[in-house]
Nucleic acid binder design. Structure first.
Length: 430
RNA sequence: GGCGGGGUAGCUCAGUAGGUAGAGCGUCCGGCUGUUAACCGGAAGGUCAUGGGUUCGAAUCCCAUCCCCGCCGCCA
């Protein structure tokens, strides 16, 4: 694996003074002074200044350094030298330099706009900014797997190609499947509800697709969805799980990726204490006090959500939304049938909804009634209804938006940057 | 689906009483033995999104079309 390398760049420290090492990477910056060449080399661990100077190296090495353009890949042998003038206080005095993959006129120079950078995403990935965000993303996903594993959840997979609709038809991408109309899944929830009768607690982290022309900072047409479902669990159990999971993820990212957060200039403290749990009624009241014209029964709109979220330091739940405002499978509150046993987790700082979930209807007749109430065709939900016919149990679950969570933790403006190759209504390349 | 903004050099943009286009950065050439987004000198580079119209003359005014961006709705 080392390909002749002796060190990663992060391992080149002043203590190695005088040692001969071989490093490999890409040219990050370059300063050409004629008979002195400065190359700043980047690898996956950091950056290192390298010097080729007449008198300190042979002519061949000096010429190779001169030839190496920005982002060309190279392997370099040299002597480690402490020097206060070098970034990080250490540099490499070049002895041999091999340009492995030349690069001429790298398109990204540093002043490009967002559109250009998205068009060149395959090249922009190597930027330190995107590297930092994507390392945070990887850490967040790893932490989710850890938390689920430690808490007895079984990882399952739901199909991407599906036949029946989940919540309503308009937002599904249609696919031609040997002449039959099928769709890309927009949630694994219904399948997880089947898995719980085997495993009780299950989760999956996989993409969901939404065919909505939503052009906002918090929407993608293809996003990674962390979903969990639990048998024998009510709304409060679900909120407990979400709270523990989100806290764990935040803690692990801060613990393991503080350098990256710092690079992004993100001052982020993992949330402390219990997440506040306010009802829709209370949330509506807060919004109305701040000037919202919403009346009871209407879903909270984005401006209201933002106003409310600025009142909180940590993520917080809003639970028990009006019956009309949510999907058919949500369980009505037995004590108050006009609201549902559902809850959203909203991030502070106006960062919007991160999690949506709730208790599901486990009664066959009630579910059938609700499907009809929503004008859906019960024949398309036979297997889903079946789950209520054979040993049904009270159960709850939720879906967490991976990119939204990363955007909140990393403090980035647009969730496009929380995934390597974002998909939006107008972008499918690269 | 609704509302708003925008397409001028490789990039980021400037350019209205209409007179066949500019800057910074980048690129190329030259110089420089300690640079930190190096610096200095020189050069190249544009069917002003597309089509049509008004006009002696259109990047600029009018009409149409295409594309992009942001906000709202929808949601994770």
């Amino acid at each position: 694996m080392k390909f002749g390398k002796t060190h990663y760049i992060s391992e080149i420290t002043p203590e190695l003074q005088g040692r001969e090492v071989v490093v490999a990477g890409w040219v990050y910056r370059k300063r050409d002074l004629g008979s002195v060449q400065f190359l700043v080399l980047r690898d996956s661990t950091g950056i290192l200044q390298m010097v080729a100077k007449e008198g300190e190296c042979n002519e061949e090495t000096l010429q190779a350094a001169k030839r190496a353009g920005i982002e060309s890949s190279l392997r370099a042998k040299g002597i480690v030298r402490q020097d206060p003038r070098a970034p990080g206080g250490v540099e490499l005095v070049l002895k041999e330099l091999e340009v492995v993959g030349p690069s001429e006129d790298f398109p990204i120079k540093g002043k490009e706009g967002p559109e250009f950078l998205l068009d060149h995403r395959h090249l922009y990935l190597r930027s330190r900014r995107l590297q930092a965000i994507l390392k945070i993303r990887a850490e967040a996903i790893k932490a989710m797997h850890e938390w689920f594993y430690k808490n007895g959840f079984i990882e399952t997979e739901a199909p991407t190609i599906i036949e029946q609709v989940v919540e309503g038809g308009a937002t599904l991408f249609e696919l031609n499947y040997f002449g039959k109309k099928v769709y890309l899944t927009q949630s694994s929830q219904l399948y997880l509800e089947a898995f719980i009768t085997a495993f009780e607690k299950v989760y999956t982290i996989q993409p969901s697709f939404r065919a909505e022309k939503s052009r906002t900072w918090r929407h993608l047409t293809e996003f990674w969805h962390a979903e969990a479902e639990m048998a024998w669990a009510d709304l409060n159990d679900m909120m407990d799980v979400v709270e523990a999971l989100v806290k764990y993820v935040a803690e692990k990212v801060v613990e393991r990726r503080s350098e990256e957060l710092e690079y992004l200039k993100r001052r982020f403290e993992p949330p402390d204490g219990r997440f506040p749990r306010i009802s829709y009624d209370e949330a509506l009241e807060m919004a109305q006090r701040k000037g919202s014209k919403l009346s009871w029964g209407e879903d909270l709109d984005t401006p209201s959500e933002r106003m409310i979220s600025l009142e909180f330091e940590t993520p917080f739940f809003v639970h028990r939304y009006p019956r009309q405002s949510r999907a058919f499978y949500h369980m009505p509150d037995p004590k108050r049938p006009e609201v549902l046993l559902c809850a959203d987790l909203l991030a502070p700082e106006g960062k919007g909804e991160i999690v949506g979930g709730g208790q599901r209807i486990h009664d066959y007749n009630l579910l059938l009634e609700r499907i009809k109430e929503f004008g859906l065709d019960p024949s398309r939900y036979t297997w889903y209804l079946d789950l209520r016919k054979y040993g049904t149990v009270p159960h709850s679950g939720f879906g967490l938006g991976v990119e939204r969570t990363v955007a909140w933790i990393a403090g980035i403006r647009h969730i496009k940057d929380a995934i390597g190759f974002p998909r939006t209504p107008t972008r499918t390349i690269p």
